[in-house]
């Protein structure tokens, strides 16, 4: 029950979806569509699981007076308030029948006033750390690191007006050497070549792993017992 049933489920679902590509008529077409809907529904339960885990973790911390327990109250309060105003669709003109994000709903207010600034500023902080890390770690120690550095510099210059100013004096016959054109060329050719090698490598890895999962050779997701 603990291992055989999950292995069978993975095998049946995976094989059905592969067969649906080669044998489109019924029942595979319907199974492909319905399995997709099931997958989407299960994804929501994963959100609920995430919320449950969050409650357990922070609830436990508050109960035990663990490290930063007072801030865990903030997490729990933020969670509870957002959940109530969202599930209740509080504040919107059509109430529970209307759009969750309609102007006037409290949920939209939470989104605009709390979630948006917090989320955006968290990521905005990274600008400062990228600058600091570049200063401390980005060294031309080896030929490979130098190539990386030069490529990065050309892109940084070429994607702003600075690149145009620095090489704008070049004659038309050498316009391909202007920094913006070099940046475009790097992105279109060497970058595409490198990314494509990575994409192909990943595709082979994903395909092999998928097959191992479906055939039950790879069982890591089942845990240890």
């Amino acid at each position: 029950m603990r291992r055989t049933v999950p292995l069978m489920i993975t095998f049946i679902v995976g094989l059905t979806l592969i067969l649906a590509v080669f044998i489109p008529p019924e029942p595979f077409d319907t199974m492909n569509r319905e399995f997709s809907v099931y997958f989407d529904i299960i994804a929501v339960f994963a959100f609920v699981l995430g919320g449950g885990n969050l409650l357990r973790l922070h609830g436990d911390r508050v109960y035990r007076r663990g490290k930063d327990w007072k801030f865990s109250i903030v997490t729990l309060a933020g969670f509870a308030v957002t959940l109530v105003v969202g599930l209740g669709k509080i504040g919107g003109p059509p109430g529970v029948r209307g759009d969750l994000m309609a102007p006037g709903t409290w949920f939209r207010f939470v989104f605009n006033a709390v979630l948006t600034p917090l989320s955006a500023t968290m990521f905005a902080l990274l600008a400062f750390y990228v600058a600091s890390a570049s200063f401390r770690a980005f060294r031309a120690k080896t030929p490979e690191a130098t190539i990386l550095l030069v490529s990065g510099f050309i892109i940084l210059l070429g994607r702003t007006f600075l690149g145009g100013i620095l090489t704008g004096w070049l004659p038309d016959s050498l316009s391909f050497l202007t920094i913006p054109n070099l940046a475009d060329w790097i992105m279109a050719w060497p970058n595409t070549a490198g990314q494509r090698a990575i994409v192909i490598g990943i595709a082979l890895g994903v395909t092999a792993t998928s097959l191992r999962l479906i055939l039950g050779i790879e069982r890591g997701y089942l845990g240890s017992d």
Binding site: A127, V130, A131, S134, F135, R136, A137, F138, R139, A140, L149, F153, L156, L157, R159, T160, F161, L162
Partner: peptide, 15 residues
């Protein structure tokens, strides 16, 4: 562009 310029300056300085 100005931010790019400052970050490049820091990289040059670091090197």
């Amino acid at each position: 562009a100005m931010a790019h310029f400052v970050i490049m300056l820091f990289i040059v300085l670091g090197n």
